[in-house]
Design a binder for these strands. Sequence first.
DNA 1: GCTTTATTAAACTCATAAGCTAATTAACCT
DNA 2: AGGTTAATTAGCTTATGAGTTTAATAAAGC
Lengths: 113, 113
Amino acid sequence: MSDPLSLTFAALADPTRRAILARLSEGDATVNDIAAPFAMSLPAVSKHLKVLETAGLITRSRTAQWRPCHLEAAPLKDANGWISRYRRFWEASFDRLDDYLAELQAGDPDKKS
Amino acid sequence: MSDPLSLTFAALADPTRRAILARLSEGDATVNDIAAPFAMSLPAVSKHLKVLETAGLITRSRTAQWRPCHLEAAPLKDANGWISRYRRFWEASFDRLDDYLAELQAGDPDKKS
DNA sequence: GCTTTATTAAACTCATAAGCTAATTAACCT
DNA sequence: AGGTTAATTAGCTTATGAGTTTAATAAAGC
């Protein structure tokens, strides 16, 4: 229904799902493995995995009764591409912060003493 | 209620809001200016702006009866920081794609003729 | 064939998101 | 004061998200 970028950002907008991706960055894992650290039912985790799969952030294979999940970073590349177009704005802010810090360092000569 | 990163990603998960940010990257704008391109009521746009404001992606000042919106990219920096930790994964995919393209270029000697 | 293990599906609740129209606030202009 | 313009609030509808428990599916192992 939604465009791919919206699906990706929506999938990333949940801390549980971001934690799942972090876990998968260390290697493939089964649903039970993935669910273990969470204080949440297995079906809930299964739903999170479906959201990630729909967004293309994971794929699942079938080995016996296990469905190991695998990280797929391609959508992250697109998300990164979108955000990166704003880099100059946050770097500009950093420059201003640097100026401010330099000013502080200099003893803020105009404002006090 | 949510953590800042979740708020940021949730805010970005809507194409209207992403378009608003794109518009603001060209300069500050009033609510009416922002709303003009969208086939949507003004209150709907106003709500989108509130979502962006709550996520810290915009700030609003008051000039007479106008409330010009200003892009604030700091949350994008954090979102970028989170995503960037996965860069090696999508670059790895790219490497594989490069290999594949190189293989195609070479005439795929093992598979046909 | 029956049981255990792994995972998903179904059916439900509750909260929030996105949109609308109509009404309200706020500031400007005569 | 009264009218116009800019923007938000209120109240509503509809859809979706996140979680639950219980039930079903699929494959393995005895």
